[in-house]
Simulated assay, not measured.
Amino acid sequence: MFQPCIFPFALVLTMPLLLGGCLTIREQPPIEPDPFNTPEYQAQKGLAVIKASRLYARGGTGQGVTVALIDSGLNTDLPEFEGRVFDPGFDHVENRPGTHDRVGHGTQMAGILAANKDEQGMHGIAFNAQLIPYRFGDDNEPFFFDDEIALSWQDGFDKGARILSNSWANAIPATEITEARYNQVMPKSLVTARKLVKDGAVMVFPTGNELKREPLAEPGLPVALPELEKGWIAVVALKNDGSAINAKSNYCGVAAAWCIAVPGGDSGAGQGLLTTGKDGKHVQTAGTSPATALVSGALAALQSRYPHLNAQQIREHLLATTNRTGIYANSEAYGRGLMDLDAASRTPPKVQVY
């Protein structure tokens, strides 16, 4: 005859075991560690917010994808960029192939984008991608260097880059830009941008760091020239934890339809995103510039996940898979929402064929 098992209450609490056939606790399978959640990954605080490790686990590391970096150059001999330079690019300041980064901005952006995964400091979001660096103008206004920018875009495209990272913008508000006015300011760049977008390029720009509700000229340019939109992304910068726009960033504003939000570092000592300095040391940076580099690298990493898609199809898919819940539903501020690389790498792309 079956006899019920009776145990003192305390014994039941302290013995989650097989007890005379009366209590069975199924053994749970071990939780698989995330091989990409390394100290380097954690040191680059923006990566976890946009769930980059899920993209890496699905093969999206930037392998085989080239990005043109139009900035203050790149010190290519640093260990963080060993094997990451597809072509030496061009230095328009010194008028020679290869670049020297005097101010350090371009090297910092390159670190955010593609610094090596080498167990040192941090790594770029697309740590297997390739770069083509260009130097123009250093600290001066971009409109003084229209020729150099246009030449850099075209040369990068001719050498295989379909993603062009531009962590700069002219200070004219996008709401004041017309085709005629931009043609006065950046005539050669305008011609080149139209041509390259038609041929499949994607241009990435920051909304700017003026704490305004509208972006600057370049990120908002498709307002005046709608044919550019299919090859355009504007980027707004969030705090490190993604909880709100950071203390520098302009809103997406009129660029909301092609704007995306990612961490761009917080203001204050030690509060920025970790990246590579011009001398090889790791430094902090904050603003819409590093946010732009983060998105450019994300496009490269995602394209290596979906190599059958072109750059503009990747752009469309990235914008279609953002997180638009909670605060990110405010399109004036956050555009299409928070970049979500888990969703982008998990959801089969539904894209148009251009």
Rank of each mutant, 00 (worst) to 15 (best):
Y56A: 07
R58V: 05
G59P: 01
G60N: 04
T61D: 13
G62P: 01
G62R: 00
G62D: 03
G62Y: 00
G64C: 13
V65G: 05
T66P: 09
T66D: 10
T66G: 08
T66H: 05
V67F: 04
A68R: 00
A68D: 04
L69G: 03
I70C: 11
I70N: 04
D71F: 08
S72A: 13
S72I: 03
G73R: 02
G73S: 10
G73F: 01
L74N: 01
N75L: 06
N75A: 05
T76I: 12
T76Q: 14
D77G: 12
D77T: 15
L78A: 07
P79E: 15
E80L: 13
F81K: 01
F81Y: 10
E82Y: 15
G83L: 09
G83N: 06
R84Q: 14
V85H: 03
V85I: 15
F86V: 01
D87Q: 10
P88E: 08
P88R: 07
G89P: 03
G89Y: 00
G89V: 04
F90M: 12
D91R: 04
D91G: 06
D91H: 04
V93T: 12
V93H: 08
E94D: 15
E94M: 14
E94G: 13
N95S: 14
R96E: 10
P97I: 08
G98T: 01
T99F: 07
H100R: 15
H100P: 00
D101I: 05
D101P: 02
D101E: 11
R102C: 09
R102S: 13
V103A: 11
V103S: 14
G104M: 09
